[in-house]
């Protein structure tokens, strides 16, 4: 299953990913109309300040997802048809916030849906081939890849760095 990996040195903290996420989860899917929607669309990833650098914090769609185990109403489930991403059915969410309480990355938020407050969680953009945040990143800090691909990239980078240091 593909995951979104982060090259921290490339994150400039521009927050385009947050904007793109909100726009993707709006009714109109266009920035200039999405900003006028009520309720306002809600981002599901967070660019935060960590120790002097900007760090995008995203949902990992964990194998042993605590939010999935914690959900009281069965709103959060694993979508086997989409490689096992952990997603949410808003109509089943009762707004108990147990998922918020247990997500170690703090990437579950609250949003208005049809007048009720429900959980807002990354759904890996079911209507797109590549998640909106990844596409929006102007420096390609966010990388959408299989873990093996990513490991290969990381190894190549380390090797290149080491090679550069030799001699």
């Amino acid at each position: 299953m593909k995951h979104i990996f982060v090259r921290l040195d490339r994150c400039t903290g521009c927050r385009e990913c947050e904007l793109a996420c909100a726009v993707e989860h709006s009714a109109s899917k266009e920035l200039l109309t999405a900003i006028f929607e009520t309720p306002p669309p809600r981002k599901r990833l967070y660019v935060e300040s960590g120790d002097g650098r900007s760090v995008p914090i995203l949902c990992r769609h964990c194998d042993d997802a605590p939010c999935l185990a914690a959900c009281l109403s069965g709103a959060i489930y694993r979508d086997r048809a989409r490689e096992g991403v952990v997603v949410q059915r808003a109509d089943k969410c009762i707004g108990c916030w147990t998922c918020i309480m247990v997500c170690p990355y703090g990437v579950i938020g609250r949003r208005l849906d049809g007048g009720r407050w429900v959980a807002a969680k990354c759904d890996r953009c079911p209507d797109r081939a590549i998640p909106a945040c990844v596409e929006a990143c102007p420096t390609k800090a966010l990388v959408y890849a299989e873990p093996e691909e990513w490991a290969r990239m990381a190894r190549r980078t380390v090797a290149t760095t080491l090679a550069g240091q030799e001699g």
Partner: peptide, 8 residues
């Protein structure tokens, strides 16, 4: 969980 998500 999944620390390798981040590359420095």
């Amino acid at each position: 969980r999944f620390p390798e998500v981040y590359a420095a």
